[in-house]
């Protein structure tokens, strides 16, 4: 359920939002589907593993999330991206098209921390790859859930000023190069929310999500158009499909 969460200003215009581990809980059914199973086709042993993994999420997820809102506009002569603050971000035409009505953009970061990732790696190391795979999948879904909760929160904050928000978009998807991650991170203080970037623009902890949300009086959240993205199999698309009303 959408609700306004507590937030504090870390530095001018940069907000950290308090998201509890309970807010990123995922249901068994969502995890079954992300693993490939419809509810009635999963082996009882796998169901037991799912129960075990989901029970661990609360203790192992240390969610941190934050955002910054800046003026933004798509430049008519540079359709492959948009200007955020004074920086041109090369999101690609697909995302720029989705953000064409944006007057502002919320850049965001969130993570569930390193706990789930470490658990998964340990299980693989100890010879339990099945459980390790389940933990990794659950962790990816929890990170997406954290991003969804933050997205809803930003939507409510903006609604207070009479503005609406678009879908959220992340580097690596819909044609937005992963390398642009560095530009996105430049808008935040170093190690904001405990997330850093490796030389190859990989976020650490790995179970983190970064991205951008368009804001404006005429901005709209639409159904995700995964068919427009070149990545045919990703946790985000599975999460969107799973959260879609049936």
């Amino acid at each position: 359920m959408e609700r306004l969460l507590p937030q504090s200003e870390r530095e001018e215009g940069v907000f950290e939002v308090t998201i509890d581990a309970a807010d990123v809980t995922i249901s068994k059914e969502v995890l079954y589907r992300a693993l490939g199973y419809s509810d009635n086709r999963i082996d009882p042993h796998f169901k037991d593993i799912v129960d075990h993994v989901l029970a661990g999420i609360h203790d192992l997820c240390a969610v941190r999330a934050g955002y910054r809102v800046l003026d933004a506009h798509v430049k008519a002569d540079r359709g492959e991206g948009l200007v955020v603050g004074r920086t041109f971000i090369t999101t690609g035409c697909t995302i720029a098209g989705q953000l064409k009505n944006a007057e502002k953009a919320a850049l965001f970061l969130c993570t569930i921390g390193p706990g789930m990732e470490a658990w998964s790696r340990r299980l693989f190391r100890e010879g339990d790859p099945v459980r390790g795979h389940f933990v990794d999948t659950a962790a990816s879904l929890a990170a997406e859930k954290a991003a969804a909760v933050l997205h809803d929160h930003i939507g409510l904050v903006m609604a207070g000023g009479g503005l609406k928000v678009t879908n959220r978009f992340s580097p690596g998807y819909c044609g937005w190069p992963v390398a642009d991650q560095r530009r996105l991170f430049s808008f935040f203080p170093e190690n904001f929310c405990g997330i850093s970037l490796t030389e190859s623009a990989l976020m650490v902890p790995v179970k983190s999500v970064s991205g951008m949300i368009g804001i404006g009086a005429h901005a709209m959240r639409e159904n995700y158009s995964c068919e427009r993205c070149s990545r045919k199999e990703c946790t985000a698309s599975r999460a969107y499909k799973n959260s879609a009303p049936t």
Partner: peptide, 15 residues
């Protein structure tokens, strides 16, 4: 490869 820390896919192929 260097710079990438993802290992689930690699582990699956390996096994």
């Amino acid at each position: 490869v260097a710079g990438d820390l993802h290992d689930i896919g690699k582990n699956l192929v390996s096994m």
